[in-house]
Design a protein around this nucleic acid. Sequence first.
DNA 1: CAGCTTGCTCGGGGATTCCCTGATGGCACG
DNA 2: CGTGCCATCAGGGAATCCCCGAGCAAGCTG
Lengths: 226, 226
Amino acid sequence: MKATTSQQEKQQRILIVDDHPIFRKGIIMLLEHEDDIVIYGEAETAADALRQVERHDYDLVISDISLEETNGIELVKSLKALKPHLPVLVLSMHDESLYAERALRAGARGYLMKQAPPDQVVAAIRQVLRGELYLSAAANLLMLNSFVSGRDHSTKSMVEKLSDRELEIFELLGKGRGTSMIAHDLRLSVKTVEAHRSHIKAKLGISTAPELVRAAVEWVTHQQAR
Amino acid sequence: MKATTSQQEKQQRILIVDDHPIFRKGIIMLLEHEDDIVIYGEAETAADALRQVERHDYDLVISDISLEETNGIELVKSLKALKPHLPVLVLSMHDESLYAERALRAGARGYLMKQAPPDQVVAAIRQVLRGELYLSAAANLLMLNSFVSGRDHSTKSMVEKLSDRELEIFELLGKGRGTSMIAHDLRLSVKTVEAHRSHIKAKLGISTAPELVRAAVEWVTHQQAR
DNA sequence: CAGCTTGCTCGGGGATTCCCTGATGGCACG
DNA sequence: CGTGCCATCAGGGAATCCCCGAGCAAGCTG
């Protein structure tokens, strides 16, 4: 817990976590002329980051999502466990829809892509420092799909909205089975399987067939049944 | 462009190609104190890079391997076609296993991971500027392996048997893109994408389309999302 | 250099799947 | 006893998958 003193003299101290030294330098250079913000520490690994957070007081942690050993999401969770009120801004290489949602679920206060223009990065940092939530436009849009449609989405996994039969087919899709294969396995008409696919897509906010298969494969492989 | 006082020494002019602004800043900062080297231009896309190379004289191009639209390998090829003697140093955030060999075969003069420490990056830049070849230790080792083992195809990862173009399409498949989407992204005919899919399936020993997508999704997620 | 292989690019055409619009019956809930 | 959700399936047009094939460029080989 930290008193939000709006003194001009007090600098906001940031820990930057990224396994790419050059990228860390980029962030430093980005904030070079922001007098009220200072990169107070750097970390390459999740373990390193946790060690530094224990040792010093930071006002914000900026972390890459794909670290060397641990997943960036796991780091967010660990940080939340250690310092619940320390905000974390997550950066990601790709605009992967999955990670934005997972990061926020894990307790991150912002999500931003590394492709973002510098001023947007600074804006995101300031916004999170003020205690607000930051979502880039693209991530925001993806969130809309899952959040707006149902407020229960944030706690429940989307897949839990599927019916038994739909989940069964979803899992088969994730194992690489085709429509006709599934129909044969389940002794159903191909048309029925197609109908289920369609309903699954609707419930999951997916619009194309390849995206559906991708979601199913990742679901099956990651066993995220919580 | 800052006017430099030293005139006896010609500054080496570098074009940096990367779709992450922050990373470009990192490189700039890295070379800030190297007086004989100057980042003379930045580019976000392959098309942008080609335009700049046509317009100005550069001594070196530093390029990321995974750009927004075009593959970094393709950019290397295009650059070689345009300016055969302009050296290119390729940076990658992935490990070397797959792309190092492809990059060099495409005409790159060096290959380096983004995780590399700053001094190593500077060393690589200088080495390539001198006309030498630079390979990071890990990449070096892998190259030797691939030469020594010769025709050892079975132990290699299946994916390594794919051609550049095939790998590119395989990755897009793993990101949930459909055939026509890929054709549009790569400015190809749908028929061509279908042909590539077919060849990938043959090389990977896959017989059905859903299995192909599953393999691609799992490969992509295991490759870079960890 | 002529021949061979590999990679990249497409087309034809039939089989299959995708996707939208319904439609039917069952079951639960209020 | 309507209303909603679920599971099942059909029709039909668009898109795809997948088998055939072909042309062209580049690189290797004898």
